[in-house]
Structure formats: C-alpha cells, structure tokens
C-alpha cells in the first residue's frame, strides 16, 4: 500500500515551475527528498499538503485523494515545515492546548509519553526551545494525533551532529512497526545514506529519479580516467571535473562502456548531487 502517491504535480510561478512531479512512498518506509536549494523541495511539499494552489496533478494519501478528503486526511498527516514558526511567546503547554483541538484523535497519554521521550519541558516558552527541540515538539504533536504519514521539510538542518543522530534514530524507531511512513527533505545527504529506504532527487522543479536508495546510487557511475579517455566519453558524461592528472565525471550506468577500461566507482548521494549541479553550470 502506498502511504503517499504524488502524480504529475504542476505548479507554475513566474520564474520557477514544478513539472510533472511524481513520487510514490510505500507504507512503513523512509524516503529522503534531496535537491539543491531552490530545486523545488519545499514547493513540492507545500503542494502535497495543499498549502499552495497547484495547477495540475493529484495527491493520494493512503489511497485517498487529497483534494477530495483534505480535512480527513490531514488528521493522519504530521508535518513540520522549516521557516514556519510557532507563536513564540506562549508556553509549550498553552500552544498544545490550542493545537490539540483541531484533531479528533488526539491522545493525551501519547503526548505526555513523547514529551518525556524527547525530554521536552511543557512549561518552557517556544522562544526558549532550541531548533532540535522545536523539531521534536513538532514530531510530538504529529505523533499524538495518530499521524501515519510524516512530511518534514529539512527537519535536520540547523541541528548539531548529536541532535541529528538522535532524530534519525527516532525516525527509524517510528517506521519499525511498518505503520508510519516518513518523507523528509534535506540537503545533508549523509543523513540519508544509512536511514533512508528510498531517494527522490529533484532538480529545477523536475524529478531526476525516484528509486530505492542502492538502486538510485547504482544507476550512476563515477569515472576516473586520463585526459585522452575523457575525450572518448565526454559526450555521455552528466558533468566532469578535470585536473592535471585526468578527470572525474558522473555518467548514467547504462551509458558506460565497460570495454573503455576507465576506472569506475559507485558514487554516494553527495557526489551525484554535486555533478548534477555542475551540469547546470555547463549549460548556463
């Protein structure tokens, strides 16, 4: 069963557009949503949540159409968007009191449980919470209303390594029973190397690829060769860098000719992003 099924989202702004964005997240798994700043991650997430008006496309959450069942479906979605802050001067306790009224299946016991687990103090003011604490507070709210799908925009950015690791461990605990699914965007790709099951890579408002993580990485090859070898493959490379010893470049695994004898390696997520970003530079 698909927790989230996004089909051909289109949204046009004056200088930027989402073009036929599609992605599918199976129930019980973690999907990392990657792309450079301005690639369209946040716009996609806002479109999924119906927070911006889309020009075309459909979103299904747990099999139901978002446009037709928005209020019902949002009871089961937890989301945290960067940049959108809570009212900072009230206490956590007061704010929760307001928020919980929106949710039919609010569970006070679960909420207290998550506060304890995340070491959150209800009597603190929002302004006094660290970035990590705020993310955890968003998660506590989402999980206390029984969310089965978590959509998180850059939940790990701004966190120190310990807090990030802590959060990723929580994500993995959440999906371990196979009921909760998580889509989170990030540009810190090392967060995804271990914990993500699927990767969706967006560039310039278009999905480059959405696939299982190893399959995603293995669909590219990092080539390392001499200047004369570069001339043989140049046309087929996504982009490349040269130095006085030769070149390194990224290629679609299917475009690589093993008889060329050029040394290959499987790239990591960061390398894939970097070479795609470089491609842009080449064409500008």
């Amino acid at each position: 069963m698909l927790a989230l099924d996004v089909r051909n989202l289109n949204k046009k702004y004056e200088k930027f557009q989402l073009k036929d964005v599609s992605l599918q997240l199976e129930k019980g798994y973690i999907m990392g949503f990657i792309g450079a700043n301005g690639a369209g991650k946040t716009t996609t997430i806002k479109s999924i949540l119906n927070m911006v008006h889309i020009d075309g496309g459909e979103v299904y959450v747990l099999g139901k159409n978002m446009a037709d069942h928005e209020l019902e479906l949002k009871q089961g979605i937890g989301y945290a968007l960067g940049g959108i802050d809570f009212y900072t001067r009230s206490k956590v306790k007061t704010l929760t009191g307001v928020i919980k009224k929106f949710y039919a299946h609010w569970d006070d016991a679960a909420y207290s449980d998550y506060l304890r687990r995340f070491k959150l103090d209800e009597n603190k003011k929002i302004a006094e919470l660290s970035i990590g604490m705020k993310v955890k507070y968003s998660l506590a709210l989402a999980l206390s209303h029984g969310a089965k799908l978590l959509i998180l925009d850059e939940p790990t950015s701004g966190l120190d390594p310990v807090a990030r690791d802590d959060l990723l461990e929580i994500f993995q605990q959440l999906v371990s029973d196979g009921e909760i699914s998580i889509l989170f965007s990030t540009h810190i790709t090392s967060d995804l190397e271990k914990c993500a099951d699927f990767i969706t890579f967006i560039e310039n408002g278009q999905i480059v690829r959405s696939a299982e993580k190893e399959e995603f990485k293995e669909s590219y090859l990092l080539l390392n060769g001499t200047a004369s070898q570069l001339n043989e493959v140049k046309e087929r490379l996504i982009s490349y860098k040269t130095n006085s010893f030769g070149f390194t470049g990224l290629i679609h695994a299917g475009d690589y000719d093993p008889s060329s004898g050029i040394q290959t390696a499987t790239p990591n997520l960061e390398e894939i992003m970097i070479y795609f970003a470089k491609k842009e530079d080449l064409h500008v």
């Binding site: 461990e169 999906v175 371990s176 029973d177 914990c195 993500a196 099951d197």
Partner: peptide, 17 residues
C-alpha cells in the same frame, strides 16, 4: 527485518536486500 534495521541503524530495505 524491521527489528534488525532499527537495531543496526540502517534502512529496512538494506536488511531486506
């Protein structure tokens, strides 16, 4: 699978594979 993934801190699909 899911228990191993959580304990080893790796993705579910990795263990499945």
């Amino acid at each position: 699978i899911r228990q191993a993934a959580q304990e080893l801190r790796i993705s579910v699909i990795t263990v499945k594979k």
